[in-house]
Amino acid sequence: DLTAAILAALPPAPPARRRPRARAVLTLRGALGLIGALQLVLGLVQVGRGPAGHLHTGVAASGHLWHESAAWNIAVGAGFLFVAARRTRPTGLVPMLSAFVGTLLLLSINDLLLGRVDPTRLVSHGFLLTGYLVVVALSRPRMWPDDPRAGDRGDRPGWRLRTDETPQPAPTPLRLAPPHPSSARTRDRRAA
């Protein structure tokens, strides 16, 4: 029976400082779930209400653009709910959300300055912005102490340029031998 020897060889229990991080991750996931549900409801209400009740004017209030906006709200809400339900870092969602939130922020500021939108309409973008910030916080490796990819690297990139390795020689190109008399590609027609 080697149980005692194996248990003695195991590393010590993780330090207590990781527990607050686990609670923080759980709290952020719970907040993201709530924000995702609110964003999803916002999109569904937007589908049911239609463009007539919207405060934008002109082309932006057309039916098709309204439906595209509702679809984005529903998709973002579903994405937030998906991330909140998972127990892994949401790194794949960060680039798309960064582009969406950044573009929406710039366009909203422009519309606000030009008087194309009522400032109260922009309040609903707060759910999106808050959810985005939570996703970015959850994507940090330090938030996931049990993730083996986090290690002791901190927030440094996972790749490094190694200059101490000798370069491998290039593989020799594959050379095909010329066809021989018994191959199908021969041009010898004397056998016929």
Score class of each variant (00 low, 15 high):
Met143His: 02
Gly126Val: 01
Asp164Phe: 08
Gly126Gln: 00
Arg121Gln: 15
Pro148Met: 05
Pro148Cys: 05
Leu122Arg: 02
Arg149Phe: 09
Pro141His: 02
Gly151Gln: 13
Asp164Gly: 08
Phe127Trp: 05
Leu129Phe: 08
Met143Trp: 01
Pro145Ile: 03
Arg162Ile: 12
Pro167Ala: 13
Leu122Ile: 03
Gln168Arg: 15
Leu128Gly: 06
Ala137Leu: 05
Thr166Ile: 12
Leu122Pro: 00
Pro157Tyr: 11
Met143Glu: 03
Thr130Val: 12
Ala137Gln: 02
Leu174Lys: 08
Met143Lys: 00
Tyr132Ser: 04
His125Thr: 04
Ala150Glu: 03
Leu133Pro: 09
Trp144His: 13
Pro141Asn: 05
Val136Met: 04
Arg153Thr: 11
Asp146Cys: 01
Asp164Thr: 13
Tyr132Lys: 03
Pro141Tyr: 03
Tyr132Pro: 03
Arg153Lys: 12
Thr172Lys: 12
Asp164Ile: 06
Arg160His: 11
Arg121Gly: 04
Asp155Leu: 11
Thr166Cys: 08
Arg162Val: 15
Phe127Thr: 06
Ser124Val: 12
Pro171Met: 06
Asp147Ser: 07
Ser139Met: 04
Pro167Met: 10
Pro167Gln: 11
Ser139Arg: 03
Arg162Cys: 09
Leu138His: 07
Leu174Met: 10
Gly154Thr: 09
Val135Asn: 04
Phe127Ala: 06
Leu129Arg: 00
Gly151Met: 12
Arg140Tyr: 05
Val135Gly: 03
Pro169Ser: 13
Asp155Lys: 02
Val123Trp: 11
Asp164Val: 08
Tyr132Glu: 05
Val136Pro: 00
Gly151His: 12
Val134Lys: 00
Pro148Gly: 04
Pro167Val: 12
Leu133Thr: 09
Gly151Arg: 13
Val134Arg: 00
Thr163Asp: 11
His125Cys: 01
His125Val: 03
Tyr132Asn: 05
Pro141Cys: 02
Trp144Lys: 06
Glu165Cys: 08
Ser139Glu: 02
Arg140Lys: 09
Ser139Asp: 06
Thr172Arg: 15
Pro157Ile: 12
Gly154Ala: 08
Asp147Arg: 06
Ser139Val: 04
Ser139Cys: 05
Trp144Ser: 06
Val135Ser: 04
Arg142Thr: 13
Leu128Glu: 00
Pro157Glu: 14
Pro157Gly: 14
Arg149Trp: 10
Val134Ile: 12
Pro171Glu: 10
Ala137Met: 03
